[in-house]
Design a protein around this nucleic acid. Sequence first.
DNA 1: AAAAAAAGAATGAACATTCATTTTTATATA
DNA 2: TATATAAAAATGAATGTTCATTCTTTTTTT
Lengths: 192, 192
Amino acid sequence: MAKLQKSIDKRNALLKATIELVNNSGFHATPMSKIAKMANVSPATIYLYFENKQDLVNQTYLEVKTKYTDFVFKAYDENTSVKTGFEIIWKRIAEFNSNECEYAFFLNQCNNTPMIDEPSRKEGIKYLQPLLHLWQRGKEEGVIKPVSDYILYAYSINPLSFLIMAQKRGEFQFTKAHIDEAFLAAWDSIKL
Amino acid sequence: MAKLQKSIDKRNALLKATIELVNNSGFHATPMSKIAKMANVSPATIYLYFENKQDLVNQTYLEVKTKYTDFVFKAYDENTSVKTGFEIIWKRIAEFNSNECEYAFFLNQCNNTPMIDEPSRKEGIKYLQPLLHLWQRGKEEGVIKPVSDYILYAYSINPLSFLIMAQKRGEFQFTKAHIDEAFLAAWDSIKL
DNA sequence: AAAAAAAGAATGAACATTCATTTTTATATA
DNA sequence: TATATAAAAATGAATGTTCATTCTTTTTTT
């Protein structure tokens, strides 16, 4: 166990360092040597755990995406009204964005740049399923606008990313009141 | 004039090449040598027109941002109802995003990465003024929700960027009908 | 023919990755 | 239990490449 645990610790330290450095400088501006230093490891050691830099970032992305999905959909159960279900999911996303903003910021970076390769990106998209089902049901019940899921996502979920980025830049400060205002805007934009 | 024109042409060729290459690979993954090649110029020549790579990108950003602003607010006049004014501005933004998607995509890249330095970013933010005034008036008239401009922007303007990026990736195809649906979502999210 | 603009080649730094050794861990033997 | 040794893990120092920028020479303009 000692040995296995040690490996896991080292891998986690590498993922953590990757997130922090990529968040602050972007993929191409974070050298492997810095990642190694922050994780207290030799540069060569990274290559015992990951194939190369791209692989390190892809794996980091998938790991963080999984944390996100687990957190967001854990509290969700299908037997609610569409509005309530949406509110539960939306609030969990907002909570993740506030509480785990390092992770949230990293995911945004990945979504907005060519940092992640296509297969990993595709893999990361599957997570949406429960939300898409909920929207489908909402459309059938005449509660949600009958428009493309991309539009629903763009208006009700993606704005949180924008606000998080603004907060990270220090331009905007999220408060409890803002969350409620934002939720209302999200719901208004997609409800019929 | 011949000489001056030649210089302007060369500078424009460099800006154009920068936009195209940065759009497809990002800032750090586009070497000066490629920019030079695409603009039919020697790498050394770039340094006659720009201080360094950062300066080249900053200037490109400001130039594109200006094109955007000019286009978006040209058709706007203050003597309309808040709703009509908003619709005019919003539709112009949508039109710019469709018709000049190379420019729109470049601006998104700049907004989502640490590619642009802080002074240039600050300079680029001023453009919003007419929209912010309109929202202010809308709040006073009780037509627009009394919430932070960041929230209004996040819900009514920023989603277009998300949709453009999805389109660029080939995941989503913008049609005339989508534009109308998107406008409705935008307006619903901010109206009282 | 002087000045300005442009070019290609050279420079030096940064970086991803690999290599040759050293250190640590696990195992087997006494 | 203590020791020897083989295997695994980790390391710091190369390696070779890519790139921004500068230097020197050539071409173009005045």
